[in-house]
Design a protein around this nucleic acid. Sequence first.
DNA 1: CAAATGATTCGCT
DNA 2: GCGAATCATTTGG
Length: 231
Amino acid sequence: MYRIYDRAFFEQDAVSLSRSLLGKLIVRTAGEQSLVLRITETEAYMGAPDLASHSRNGRMTRRNQIMFQGPGLVYMFLIYGVYYCFNITANEPGKHEAVLIRAGTPVAGLKQMIENRSLGPSPKSSAQRIKEIASGPGKLCQALGLDLTQYGLDLTDPSRDELYIADDGFAVREEDIIEDARIGIDYAGKDKDRPWRFYLKDEPTVSLTRDQRLRREARRINAKKEERSER
DNA sequence: CAAATGATTCGCT
DNA sequence: GCGAATCATTTGG
């Protein structure tokens, strides 16, 4: 397993980087031990032209200013007043793109991650346990103990090792990458259905599979229909 | 300065 | 399935 120090790795556009990050490891060093997750789900936010991006129309605020500082940096933000999201800036500085890390599967430090998630003793199968750790962006940050403290961190900085990306040779085949719509961006108009979410096929830690998403969508439409027929 | 708003998760019905 | 939790950040007056 080797750490990725190469800035060029993060210099790709966010869609390419989202694909490249699948199967890579997030290494979180806190105190004595390292917590390690293999990335199973990502989302690309494509900067100015992308209405779903915090940097849509080139908008820069105090919250998102790190998106404008170049690739390989950590963009953390609080969502719904409750959870944190871990993003990595992508492409050249003028593009202000980023990749949201949505889910992962534990590789090392499981015990600490369970504690960080406040999951309590395991009543379920170990497969079930694995799914609870980081099957969603907020859960992932909780498991790794990430918050605004990591905002702006340079993942390629050799003098910092509290958070970085590593490669252990895990091979991801193109045909095992599923493309799907991004989650929770209904406000994004023309961009809300773009296939810029990527996840590993048959990976149980993925937050929402295509089938689950379509079923949910179908139910929503059905409910709306019933509501209409009542009037 | 007040009001609105999420790149979500969990627990209860 | 649905709604609440909960607050930093942004926006508008």
